[in-house]
Each structure stands twice: as C-alpha cells, then as structure tokens.
Design a protein around this nucleic acid. Structure first.
Lengths: 306, 306
DNA sequence: TATAATTCATTCCAAATCAGAATGAATCGG
DNA sequence: CCGATTCATTCTGATTTGGAATGAATTATA
C-alpha cells in the first residue's frame, strides 16, 4: 500500500465527503479510493470513516488522524518542491472564476501562460456561484469584490471599473443622458444578482455621492446577458468595463458620465490559507497580476493615466 | 512506488552510508533498497546520491531533500501514533547496552517487559564500544557514566555503585585489607579500559578523598573477565556492585571498606533528540526506571537505606 | 601482489498487488 | 415508486514488486 496516496485520498474524502467525488478528482475510479482507505484503516488498525451506502462520517480516530494529514502532505510537498525539476512549476492547476470573467479575461491569456509553463495543465472551472475551494479541490479562484472567508487568502491583482454604458446605436436612437439623474427617462438593464438592482450609485469628481433609481424592461441574472443586451442596443447598463472593452475601444459601446468616478471593485486571487503553496499557483497569480497591470481595463486605478 | 517507504530507505541510507546496511536493517535485500531509491530519484527527477561501486555520497539535491525527510517521517509517525491500536506500544525496539550490563541486568528483565507489551519485539545489541545511534539504527542505548554527545538525550534511570570487592575464598587465603592503603599488599585486578587502571580513588565517609596505587598479576579489558576473576578468587577488584550482586548476596563475594563511600556512576537511557518519540521507546525507559528503583543495586543513592 | 570479501547495478522470474469493469445493495429525491 | 447516485465486493488482467543470481568494482587481508 502506498500510504501517501492513501492519505491524500483520505484527506480529499474528508473534504468532499464522497469517495466518488475524490475518484473523479484524482482521475481514477471509486473502488480504488474505497480500497485505498480500507487499506489505510487496516494498516492503522482503526476505523477512520463510518460508511452508510450514501453518506460518510468521520470517526473520532478519523478526526484525530485527519488533523495531522494536512501537515504530512505539506511537509512532503515542501520536500519535493525543494529539489530538482519540481522547482519548475508543474502539475494540474484547478482554477475557478466567474463565467464571463473567465471567458473574456482568463481564457485569452491562458495560451501564453501555458506556453510559458509547459509542465502545467489547467482545469478551468467557470461558475458565478461562490464555490468552496476545499470541497471542490480548487487551487485558485479569481473573485471580484470583497471576500469574506477568513480561511482563504485574497491577494489583489487588479481592479474592475464599473461604469454606465450603452451601445452607440441605442444612444443615437434615444439620445445620450448627460447626468445620472436623466437615467430615469431611459431603459436601464438591471442585474438581479445585486442586493438593490434598481439603485445605482454615483460619485461625481467633486465628491458628491448620489443614488439614482432606475427602471427598464430587462432584468437579467448573468453578466453574459448584460453584455449581449447592451450590444444589441436594448438599453443602458451599469457593468464592469472589461465586459465590453473591445466594443468600447471600437466605439460600438460608449461610457457615459465621464465626470463621474467609476465604481471600483478589487479583483482578487483567492487561495487556501496555511497550506504549502505549490509553485504552479504562485506563478499563475504572478502572471495574471503582471498581465492586469498592463491592461488599462484592469490595472489599478492609481496606475492609470488620469 | 511507495514514496514513504522510499523516503525511509533514503534516510537510513544517508545515515548508514550503505544500501546493504539498510537492507539488513529493514529485513530486505540490497537490490530492493537500490531500486527504491532509484525510483525515488526517478520520481523527483533528480539525483540524490552519487554511487561508486563502494561508496555513496549525497548530491546537493539529496542534501536538500534529506533535510526535509526527518520532518516527514516524524509527522507521519505522530499521525499514526495518534490513532487506534498504535497508541499501544508496538514494533521493533532496537536496544544497545554494555555487554555485561545487558547479560546481568537487561536480559533477566526482558521477559516480563515483553509479556507486558506483547506487540513489541526487542533487538538487543550488546557492545562495550560506544556506538552511533543514528548510524546503527538503534532506538535506545543504556550507558553508564556521563554522555558527551549533545545530539542525544540522556535520561538518568539508575545508579551504579562501584565498590572494592573480593571473593570470600581470596580473603580467607590472603586476609582482608582494612583500608585502601593496605591494597598495596594485595593482588588487584585492573581494568585496562580506564584512563588510569592502577589508580583507585577513595573517599571516606568523613570526606577525605585519596588515591591508591594498586598492582596485580591480572589486567583485563572486559567486565565479564573481572567478574570471573573475582569469583575465581584471583584477586581484589574495583567494579560495579551489580556485576556480582548475586554472589555478594550469597556471601561468596565480599565488599570491602564499608566506611568508604562507593563511587557512583549514573545509568542513562540515551535516545535521539528532536525526533518523534515512539511509545515503544518511552515505555521501555519507564519500565527500566521503575525496575531499577526497586533494585537496591541500581536504585538512586538517595533512595537507599543508609 | 594475489585473494577474499564486500559493495552496488542489473537482469530475470515468480508472486503479490493494484486498477478498473461489473454487479449489487442501500439510500435519496422527486 | 422509480431513477439516480452512492459505496462495497468480486473478478480479472496488467503492472509492480521483491528476491535470487550474476557481474563489475573496490577495499581489506594475507
């Protein structure tokens, strides 16, 4: 029996609560995991998990053992990373990020990254739902806006600017509002995921915050849809500039209210705390941070030309 | 490949400097160790050892890796010890101690110990030479007198009393000296392992230290021989009382100079520092310490009836 | 200097192990 | 009550493993 492999399987089993899930994650089959853990129990001469046909539960001994396991895997990782070829980042890198951000920002940058680090493989998991890094076995998540989970480290790597925007075609047809207050006379596309989708906040460059109530005939719950809707000229939206950055550059979409500050949201690279940091993770974060610094749509505000 | 097994083999290889030695220690064959380490190198993609047909040498990477390995094994040991049946002491316990001490003191006590801990196996290695615990893969050594190696922990578990003694038959034939000074007229058996075999130190109960020069027609380099020589009535010897304790009790051997304090030497249990302490080691030390406390020949001076 | 002994690498073979497919039983959700 | 999912078990084929044998190199010994 390979105790290390068993321990790894055990750890992931505890974290996912399922042999099958671990099997999928480790690219093997459920009987393999089942037998590995049985062998580990046999070796330790103690039961680690109580199994019902559908649920797993840690025994007291299992809890005891689990509390040591992360340390074992970390120590081994550190030892292996300290020598040879493994100093070169390698392995499978599981990334999670919001769907549209992945499509627009991450995927176009993956090719160069993978070319730079030929020994890394990426498994990109797109979801707008906030996932649990531990349960889903994700190495790294990209999150926009503040993060609450204290068991995670959130490293800022860029800034999202949220602006009011509309298609040039829409503005031609309906006229361009000159101040947020005029939005009341326009069709505004609202994002139902927000706490108050119909209240848009503004702050003029002279520092007067104000809230504007908006309305419109289109509410959506995905940023993909916002983008599509704006492009189709369906109305005015408040959205991250990177969502339509190409169209803005080409003049198809126009940013409104240049005299108002954009809302700024930090972009974070989020990863597990207290864990040995594989090189594959840190080098991807560094790559992204460098990329974002060069991209005027994502760079930190302070670095932008005024 | 079982990485943990390979790491263990690697660690022992570094410490012994030989595949064959490790193979003997781990009860396997040399090709097995050779292949394990080759597999580990293959896995890490780096050479750990440079091999000539007869010598092994750590590479830089090997040194790097080795510096992490003890931590790995310790973490794993701690994890395994924290659960289940393994809390009960078990496994192979390698003990080293001086030859006569082993024969007279340790072996007679092993039976009860092994009966108390049926899952422990003992490998007792007797040698008067001071061995290297690490190199020889010894868990625990019993040493008499002070220990110098700072990488080892020496825990006092008893006291050796060194007394002047002779067989009753010898005393009948040659008369019994009444003070150390009279030893000049007797045949004294000297122990050549000491720095000054012919100088015996005495301290009367009124605290006057003195040195006596002795001579005789028998010099020996082993404590077994001293014991035999005394019993055969060959002469007077300065020796640990436990060496002939049965004969002393039976009156065949007599302790001289009751008005002088015996020289006291501490008996230490010596084990490796900074390492996770397997239960098998600590329980043997505790067992011995308890046994010695009950044995008037070995108990600590302060506990003895005056 | 020659011989014996020890060391490590390699090869080969038998035995053990392991991974995966198939199957079955239990449970959960609808 | 049915379909889907979960875990355990069994079986089989493939892989891996461990040990004996061998050979080359080196050291110790005579």
């Amino acid at each position: 029996m390979d105790r290390l492999a068993s321990i790894k399987s055990f750890v992931r089993t505890v974290e996912t609560g399922s042999f099958s899930a671990v099997a999928r994650e480790l690219q093997t089959t459920q009987p393999t995991i089942s037998k590995q853990i049985a062998a580990l129990e046999d070796y330790l001469d103690v039961q680690l998990l109580t199994r019902s046909t559908r649920k797993l539960k840690l025994t007291e001994a299992g809890e005891q053992f689990y509390s040591h396991c992360q340390a074992i895997l970390d120590t081994v990782d550190a030892a292996e990373a300290s020598v040879g070829k493994r100093q070169q980042p390698s392995g499978l890198l599981r990334i999670n990020c919001p769907i549209t951000f992945g499509q627009r920002i991450i995927i176009p940058r993956l090719k160069a990254f993978l070319a730079q680090y030929p020994q890394i493989e990426v498994d990109l998991m797109l979801s707008d739902r906030i996932i649990n890094l531990v349960e889903d076995g994700v190495d790294l998540a990209i999150r926009i806006g503040n993060n609450s989970d204290q068991s995670l480290i959130a490293q800022p790597i860029g800034t999202t600017r949220v602006n009011t925007m509309a298609a040039a075609s829409y503005l031609e047809e309906h006229g361009e509002p000159q101040s947020p207050q005029e939005l009341a006379d326009h069709n505004c596309i609202t994002y139902t995921q927000l706490a108050k989708p119909n209240e848009w906040n503004y702050q003029s460059k002279s520092n007067d915050p104000c809230v504007v109530k908006v309305n419109g005939n289109l509410k959506v719950d995905s940023s993909v849809a916002i983008c599509q809707a704006v492009l189709s000229g369906l109305g005015i939206a408040l959205a991250p500039t990177w969502l339509c950055c190409d169209d803005i550059s080409q003049g198809d979409v126009k940013l409104l209210f240049p005299d108002y500050k954009p809302n700024l949201l930090p972009i974070y690279a989020v990863y597990r705390r207290g864990r040995f940091q594989p090189a594959k993770i840190t080098c991807f974060i560094e790559y992204l941070a460098a990329e974002f610094k060069l991209d005027p749509w994502l760079a930190d505000e302070s670095l932008l030309p005024r």
